[in-house]
Design a protein around this nucleic acid. Structure first.
Lengths: 260, 260
DNA sequence: TTGGCTGTATTGTCCGGACATTAGTACCTA
DNA sequence: TAGGTACTAATGTCCGGACAATACAGCCAA
């Protein structure tokens, strides 16, 4: 610790370039929420760490490239919010494309109630008798069913959702705004399925057509906040994968083994 | 034209920064194949365009960020080949994951012959009676069928494939190496389907399971070179979509309407 | 012929300086 | 109160310089 700067000095004997060391420091400080109020200016970082402006710019540029901050001439550098506001996944994407194509997307809530479910509780890391909010919606495009959408959420955080008309708003929006949940991440698994007869009927899916099953776990800062199972009828929309000659690219989709 | 440099001078009165102008110039020259033999050094670009090394580096760095070139200390800058060598798509991704998980992937050619097909010819932009090479393979993991894979290629460019054991090599590799095709791009469409009974039997797919259909058009420099239809059984592997809090992200999959 | 050393070439890092562009704030005048 | 001007702050651009790290080629000695 040099005592000369307001931050511990970088190691000039390290094989790691100064900009890389500074980048690591800034990552740590970002992750600790140290820049929640304000990100330092180039000049401040220069004096804080005892390096040239070029070195500061090389480090900070990489933070900007990662989307963690935004730099604007005249205004300075701001931290970009890390909230996962829309938690957009496969289904949200679909509806974006649907609406971009000029169609009307609506939803009808078929069920919204408290329940217990040992299978889902286990997925959410909860005791098997833990109360859950269960929401079952039919998603429609131009009044035709496109997807069936079922969510299970811990009642202790999401009970307020039962009082809301979810045909008019989204689960994630309300989870954030009303239940004070901070969404962090999610993961989805996609596979083709033959839906059971009641679901097939609800979707209006012909007997010779399959559906895409999208299972999703959504996580908040405090742990899992939602298990969701959706069925998208397979005879209306298709997923597109473009393959382009950018080097090394493979626009590849990740795969994992399916365990039934 | 200043006559002072070996390239037309950049416009110092333009609102566009010098690095951006230089980047545009280098893009054009790359696209024209002007650097096929050798990419110029920083020093050469400095004197060619009359700018500082910093400006050269700012422009060239962005080419590297795009993956079009590669810079190596001591060696210089090389152009990355633009060939679309592996033409990796959804299925190739799948097999990468399969093999990364320690499984053995093999394939068995069920048919390889000349044919005509008016539907596929239309897709490839060919006359309906144009001869096509038809290749039908079963793809296996640890000797269990995982996917059915059918390709149609114009015979006038791909006839040599009929003489090759495609269990031991890939269509694209041979298309490039033996048929002299330059692959440029591709696009795939994914949807869940109930396969016809012969395909279901070939895959060993239980009656209550669906398959993922992957239809793909592969393009070469001279136009479409392959139409491909694959079926992946839906009870073994699943596509994964991770949703992370990188700002602005939506790890969204693109969708398009399905026309049967 | 092979291995080691030296010299040259090339990109990467870091420093310093200066000016341009943009944004925001404060102050003044109509 | 609204509009205009001046000033300050902050990032972007561009220049120049110097040294470090890496690669490669050539040359020499064993």
């Amino acid at each position: 610790m040099s005592g000369q700067y307001s931050q511990p000095a970088l190691d000039r004997g390290s094989p790691l370039p100064l900009w890389a060391q500074l980048l690591g420091r800034l990552h740590e400080r970002l992750n600790r929420g140290e820049f929640a109020e304000r990100f330092p200016t180039d000049l401040e970082l220069m004096s804080d760490y005892g390096v040239s402006r070029q070195t500061v710019r090389d480090a900070v540029r990489r933070l900007a490239d990662e989307g963690l901050i935004q730099r604007e001439r005249g205004r300075g550098t701001t931290v970009r919010p890390r909230t996962f506001e829309q938690a957009a996944g496969t289904l949200e994407s679909l509806f974006e494309y649907v609406e971009a194509a000029g169609h009307e997307q609506t939803s009808a809530t078929r069920e919204a109630r408290l329940c217990t479910d040992a299978r889902v509780a286990a997925i959410l890391g909860l005791p098997s008798a833990e109360p859950l909010v269960y929401i079952d919606r039919l998603r429609l495009v131009d009044r035709e069913p496109l997807a069936l959408d079922r969510s299970w959420l811990p009642a202790r955080i999401a009970e307020a959702l039962l009082e809301i008309d979810l045909a008019r708003t989204g689960i994630y929006v309300e989870l954030v705004a009303r239940c004070g949940v901070k969404l962090r991440s999610g993961s989805e698994r996609l596979r083709p399925v033959i839906p059971p007869a009641p679901d097939r009927r609800a979707l209006g899916l012909p007997a010779n057509q399959a559906a895409l099953s999208v299972s999703r776990l959504t996580r908040g800062t405090g742990g899992p906040v939602e298990w969701r199972e959706s069925l998208v009828r397979g005879d209306r929309w298709t997923i597109v994968v473009e393959l382009t000659p950018t080097t090394r690219t493979s626009a590849s989709l990740p795969w994992a083994p399916f365990a039934a």
